[in-house]
Amino acid sequence: MQLELATKNGDRQADNNTAHSPLAIRGLTVSYGQKPAVFSVDATFEPGAMTAIIGPNGAGKSTLLKAALGIIKPLSGRVTSYGQPLAKQRHRIAYVPQRASVDWDFPTRVLDVVLMGLYRQLGLLKRVRPLHIEAAISCLARVGMEGFANRQIGQLSGGQQQRVFLARALAQTADLYLLDEPFAGVDAATEKAIIAVLKELNAQGKTVVAVHHDLATVPDYFDRVFIINTTRVAEGTVEEAFTPAALQEAYGGRLATAQIAMTG
């Protein structure tokens, strides 16, 4: 039964690509209590692509990302990165969690948050040197926040907080960037700044995967989509997979027909 489902949901010919994929997920199931939030999902994210993970509320978009990274323990499933177990490739992966997941009254400055992206280099005992600070400031400059380095993080607006999180991920100098709802609740200027940075990363050959909720901007921002509603609904380029039929299947009655017409 399990095998049958995996095959139905799976993507056999994609297994050849698994070796090159920055993030390949096989048969991933995550459950809170008895109800699976993500069920037997296969996903192969293309190297060098910008992929949006979309789906209705509660469809398991964020859960998929967190489980793939091992932040939540999955019930079953295998995750590889560039053909190796994910744990061996963590230095090539940067993760931007949801803004709401942290305490913004925490006593730390913007600069210190970005320096957290360098912890792998700094280890336990190494001192923070001017070269680290310069690296952090240049990451802040890429998101237009260099003027805020010494601010306490609680003084930032939502959009500014999101940019600081992105700067921290940039400091990790990764090949794969995973972002959880980077555009949720941010102002238009921030959205523009963030997408510009992501496109720049993409132009450098980096892989970008973002949980996204605004269907209208999908074709502008991304070149591939992964549609999920607990199980996988569709996966592919925007032209192939971002179809009214796939959206109807994922969102059911929850999606206004007008919106499908607009995006389709």
């Binding site: 997941s101 305490d103 925490f106 730390t108 957290m116």
Partner: peptide, 11 residues
């Protein structure tokens, strides 16, 4: 203490 998810994601 500040960001468990990021810490876990960073391994």
């Amino acid at each position: 203490a500040f960001d468990r998810e990021f810490a876990a994601g960073a391994g």
